[in-house]
Design a protein around this nucleic acid. Structure first.
Length: 549
RNA sequence: GCCGCGUUGGUCAAUCGGUUAAGACGCCUCCCUUUCACGGAGGAAUGAGGGGUUCGAUUCCCCUACGCGGUACCA
């Protein structure tokens, strides 16, 4: 039996969570769910200089919004805590010292200034960035070059030191990446990475290995930028815990900027006018705010869907996937090797699809505040959902039941809608085909809840005449007497009257639309009239008729 | 510089040696609609270059080019 699947997302709390980060979370989450494993959030805050207050909360909130909540996290500890590396500080030193004892690491006393001087001194056009490696370490102040007594003395005097990994040159180190297959490196190309910093904190290199071991991580997924330092991690695993216990690795491709090349950054979003963070993020140091996908009007379902497809597909032509479907279909070996450029137009298409495919009852709570923010109040009565009939006898399958075709009888699995939409939601359902982002609803449906601020009279006037005026006057009279007020009968009544007046319906439809909506847009006029209600429809027509006088 | 990773239309991409090289976004044309959309039909547009291997390469190998990443007491 193979070990339990445990994966982790391990961000540094240094800023907002951007697209690439959320996608890494998503792939972790999908993999964990797919294999009935655990998804862990571990905060890698070992660099105290880069710590940004609020970033950790922001990350948690973003995951909650996206619906990718971890099973274990600082906020919800499991039995592998603590989940913040700063709180695990005492753990790491012993592993560093264990490496020193086994000859795989050493003390280095070089000050940052000395390091800088070294780089300057050995820099050549052919080697612009000299590394602290097997050759150079012989020229530096460390426990390999110093007399053992001197090392002891420095240690006893509490001289600041770091612990560096000791890499033997010309060793081939390889591993199997779940996405890339066999990857090999030569140790000659990598430097003697610092494992333990002068402040006693581990660097990423030591911390990931130790924590992945201690937290029993089975699969480690991270960005492609980590590939070059993978050999260090492999070696650390080999020396500390044994490669047989090492997680399987997958290095995820980068998400690239839409124009040119290179990693997508916040700057690109500002420049090109689209979000790159999950939610709005304000940097407490600079006060800069970056807009988020949530605030731009993305549904979390759509956000996840588009992210999943940015670097992965299931091999079919299907593009719209729910989270559950993704869990079912996801596999790491179908993740691409190459980076993908982010395309905001396609991102909006995904959102549009999710808006169209779901009933408004699924997201009306996210849309309502947008109306309020624009000063449009929705009457409480319009937010009330009608009660479902106690006996769902009305739900008859639309397909005719033919016992010869279906001897089992009608599909008994048929489920009636769990809730009935409020008037507000019926309005949203009526206009959702033309909404790509949530705020579009306000522009498309605002007129249902407030009298049009401006009325495009110029679109009516040129073709306006006494006959049309008379038609509308009579239309109002007929409407006053109407009992029913549904779209269909409204339309047939209207057309009969138009025929009687010998005016083409099309000549009258446009003016009617403008009277009700204010402009040339929106769904079918009679659908609008039906939802607007008798009283309000009549009021608006009468009002515009007055303006046309 | 060195090391590593990558490269199918403008973009996301399918193909696991043999296809007229899917599909989607965007763009264009037409239809539907006397609004804006949705929807439907159609169109333009792709294997970086060069060598191999093979009866046959987008697919396998090598080289080149280009791009990206790394080369920190940052992650």
């Amino acid at each position: 039996m193979s070990k339990r699947v445990r994966v982790r997302f391990a961000p540094s709390p240094t800023g907002g969570l951007h697209l690439g980060g959320v996608r890494t979370v998503l792939y972790n989450y999908l993999f964990a769910r797919r294999h009935n494993g655990d998804f862990i959030l571990r905060i890698e805050d070992t660099d105290q200089g880069r710590y940004v207050p609020g970033a950790e909360e922001y990350i948690m909130d973003s995951l909650a919004w996206a619906g990718l909540e971890p099973d274990e996290s600082p906020a919800q500890p499991g039995s592998f805590g603590p989940y913040r590396q700063s709180e695990r500080k005492p753990i790491y030193a012993q592993y560093a010292h264990r490496l020193i004892e086994s000859g795989h690491a050493y003390y280095a006393f070089d000050t940052p200034e000395e390091l800088e001087a070294m780089r300057e001194k050995f820099k050549t056009p052919g080697n612009p960035s000299p590394q602290y490696n097997h050759a150079l370490r012989k020229k530096m102040r460390n426990s390999l070059t110093l007399d053992p007594k001197e090392t002891e003395r420095l240690l006893a005097d509490a001289t600041p030191y770091v612990v560096r990994i000791k890499l033997e040159p010309a060793q081939e180190v390889g591993f199997t990446d779940m996405i890339r297959g066999e990857v090999t490196f030569n140790t000659s190309g990598v430097d003697d990475k610092v494992l333990l910093k002068a402040d006693g904190m581990p660097t990423y290199h030591l911390a990931v290995v130790v924590d992945d071991f201690l937290m029993e991580i089975s699969h480690a997924f991270r960005g492609e930028e980590w590939l070059p330092s993978a050999p260090v991690h492999i070696l650390l695993w080999r020396w500390l815990f044994g490669e047989d216990k090492m997680p399987e690795w997958a290095h995820l491709p980068l998400i690239l900027k839409p124009d040119g090349n290179g990693k997508l950054s916040k700057r690109d979003g500002d420049r090109l006018g689209f979000p790159v963070f999950a939610m709005n993020w304000t940097d407490p140091r600079t006060g800069d705010t970056a807009t988020g996908f949530r605030e731009t009007g993305f549904l979390p379902e759509a956000f996840l869907n588009l992210l999943a497809l940015l670097g992965w597909n299931d091999g079919t032509a299907q593009e719209i996937f729910s989270l559950d479907e993704l869990v079912e279909r996801f596999s790491m070996d179908r993740v691409h090797k190459g980076g993908a450029k982010f395309d905001f137009e396609k991102a909006k298409w995904f959102n549009h699809e999710w808006i169209k495919r779901q009933p408004a009852t699924a997201y009306s709570d996210k849309v309502l505040p947008l109306f309020n923010a624009k000063g449009i109040d929705i009457p409480a009565a319009d937010l009330v959902r009608p009660a479902l009939p106690a006996e769902p006898l009305l739900y008859i399958p639309a397909i005719p039941m033919d016992p010869t075709l279906n001897p089992q009888g009608p599909d008994l699995e048929f489920t009636p809608p769990a809730i009935l939409p409020s008037r507000f939601e019926r309005v949203l359902d009526l206009v959702k085909d033309r909404c790509h982002l949530l705020p579009d609803f306000v522009a498309q449906a605002g007129f249902f809840f407030q009298t049009p601020a401006s009325i495009d009279l110029d679109a009516i006037r040129p073709k306006w005449n006494a006959a049309k005026n008379l038609f509308f006057v009579e239309l109002l009279r007929a409407w006053q007497l109407r009992e029913d007020w549904d779209s269909h009968s409204l339309e047939s009544g209207f057309k009969e009257m138009a025929a009687a007046a010998a005016i083409k319906p099309g000549e009258l439809l446009q003016p009617l639309r403008i009277m009700l909506v204010g402009g040339k847009y929106g769904p079918g006029v009679f659908d609008i009239a039906a939802l607007l209600g008798k009283e309000e429809t009549i009021r608006r027509v009468r009002h515009v008729l007055g303006l046309l006088e």
